[in-house]
Amino acid sequence: MVERTPLWAVFVLPALLVGAALVTAGFDAVLAAGARRGRPGSLRETAVRAVEPGRQVLRHLVQQPRRTRASDLPLARIGAGLLPVAAVLAAVVLPLGFRSVSDLPEGIVWFNAMEALAWAAVWLAGWGPNSTLSLIGGYRFLAQGLAYELPHMLAITTAALGAESLRVGEVVDAQAGLWFVVWMPVAFVIYLLSAMAMAFWGPFDQPAGRDVAGGAGAELSGADRVLFLGGRWLLLVVAAAFSVPLFLGGGHGPLLPGWAWTVLKTAAVLAFLVGVRRAIPTVRMERYLELAWVVLTPLAIVQALVVAVVVLNR
């Protein structure tokens, strides 16, 4: 059972998430610079690259406000601001070790609901500026949602089914012996795919792709841009971190304390995702959607069936 944490944890959680997002983005920036220059670079250069995301935040904060013609500023602003809000709220059910800010009885549904706010957020941010390229980006995310969301929901219900509970703490407890990833590998892989898709990042970055000059975020500047792109990294960190209690045994592990295992496993998942981003080009929905519905959805259902049969006979 996950213990309740004191109320001050609500201050720690966002700080931890922002820290993790900055580290991940810094790691990604170091790898990107290494690829462009053909070599890893000296320690000093690496350090300079690693703080690049922080510098970008500062760079955007000093920008003059920018309005496109006849834009709907409140819509774009709400869209951009909604992303980090949704990401952090989804994270309340994330246990660090065996403590989460609030272990809601329907934690998994809560996570799913918060993460789905990204649909609205990205579309609003794309619609608001009254610009063709950002409009295309916003609509691309809706198509992407239709593709990734269903296998994603089936994957997280499969984990809930394995523990017969929607409470994240109980899902972790059920993995004291055997991690779910061992007997739900398909659900785990599908979950990782959808984690990248919901953060519209890596191979699923079409809604904010460079081919549409930044897509839904094309016209955002200043604090809006920081919130939009930062919210995207937060969403990625939260989605990756949620795979740990769902499939990777949460804080369970030998020798080290629970919180250390959570951090280690989350870092491993994030590093893996950053690697995937470098290995795979952007997947266009007009091709992926068919794969998602015709291959991934039936696979996820078969996986759920296997788990259901195991649960019945246990």
Binding site: A35, R36, R37, G38, R278
Partner: peptide
């Protein structure tokens, strides 16, 4: 081509070789 296809890593490596 790689950059437009969304393969930033390959685009960066290709441009490095081009510069070389």
């Amino acid at each position: 081509f790689f950059a437009v296809a969304g393969w930033d890593d390959m685009a960066a490596r290709t441009r490095h070789v081009r510069d070389r």
